[in-house]
Write a protein that binds this DNA or RNA. Structure first.
Lengths: 124, 124
DNA sequence: CTAACAAATGCGACACAATTGCATTAAAGA
DNA sequence: TCTTTAATGCAATTGTGTCGCATTTGTTAG
């Protein structure tokens, strides 16, 4: 199952890079100046998540948002940071802060999804 | 808009108290031994959230889960804790750990939704 | 350059969570 | 008991995300 380069993939990545924020499928579709099917965009986004290019955030509106994964020096993906959803401009951005937590004994954590909601610097 | 006591409200609260965990609408409906409409359960849950009796967690499956709000000594609601969703038994519980975080200047936080996913103590 | 294979796409239908409008029922106070 | 209006049931609707299947297109081998 080798991946192929397609105009759709490039366009989606380009939009996300330009925005510098997490975006939902419909926001991406609006921003792309091409006619791409909804299902295709979802499939592209899901593949990017599988490949570690993007990571998925589920906001408290129940919707999925996608943002570029930042890789550290060892090229290891690290997405254990907080996300911030602004109530005013309705965007989601990745905060630099790492999430620090401890869990009780015998619990093991595979994944985290932490979203803070409020007013961002541009809207305050 | 004064609230009234109804069998539905009592039943929903009872189920959540007994479970001691966060539950979704369909899980609550299954557990209640009455025939209550889906929309009604949602309305009851939403009212409880408005009144601070329950708090709402949105898991990374995009679904809403509801749990009793724990109030501290001053009867002030404090729901700034982590939630843990077990992949094995598919339940969500409130962890005792408070979420500690800092946000960049000029950001203000109104609400948080932090869910850790993994294997809980009963399933490991 | 062409042919062949399989990944990617478009389209429509579908599944599911959650909400809403409206008519009806029932809780609570007078 | 009567009145008021919050709460409920029902059906329809909205919105997000997925899936099956036929078609297109990227990639590689010859």
């Amino acid at each position: 199952m080798k991946r192929r380069n397609t105009p759709t993939k490039e366009a989606v990545l380009e939009v996300l890079k330009t925005a510098g924020k997490a975006m939902s499928q419909d926001a991406i579709e609006q921003e792309i100046h091409m006619d791409i099917n909804r299902a295709t965009i979802y499939r592209v986004l899901n593949r990017f998540c599988e490949d570690g290019v993007l990571h998925r955030i589920v906001a408290d509106d129940g919707k999925q948002y996608f943002a570029l994964s930042d890789k550290n020096d060892n090229n290891k993906v690290s997405d254990n940071h907080f996300h911030f959803k602004c109530l005013a401009c309705d965007t989601i951005e990745c905060l630099p802060n790492e999430v620090s937590f401890t869990v009780p004994n015998a619990y093991s954590v595979a994944h985290m999804n932490c979203v803070l909601t409020g007013i961002c610097k541009d809207c305050s």
